[in-house]
Amino acid sequence: MGEKLSQALLAGRLELPTCQRCSNVQYPPSEICRHCLSDALEVTACDPAGKVIACALVHYSLALDFDVNSPWPIASVKMNAGPVVFAHALEFLKRDTAVTLVPIIDSIGDGVFGALANVADRDLLQTRFNRTI
């Protein structure tokens, strides 16, 4: 299920595994619904809006990809759709900041989440990763 999610993000689609029986949105990706235990999950489009729970600046990473351009702002976001996701941000985001989740391609070519207060900044956020390739 994680692979399908990643493929959707790479294709520029904000989608998450969603239970076809009870509509519960799953994250981290799962093959079984956490709510009703159905295995009828499909990666489908969902509301990309949410609010910041907290934000942290990663100065020290265990991977070389993130040694450049540090610190990397990472936010935890409570999505209106239900789940909490970690997402790359452009800058430190205060608690309760309203954000939109967007698909980003990271420096090793994987699809990941970005969290933007202004969705027009998507290309700017993507540029951070382009510089590290």
């Binding site: 981290p28 934000c55 991977a63 790359h88 608690r95």
Partner: peptide, 26 residues
Amino acid sequence: STATMDASYPYAAAGPNLPFALLTQS
């Protein structure tokens, strides 16, 4: 874990420092 590999490590590969930093900030 699969959850950390899918949903945490891709976000700057900070290991447990990331979730605990977010928790501490909250």
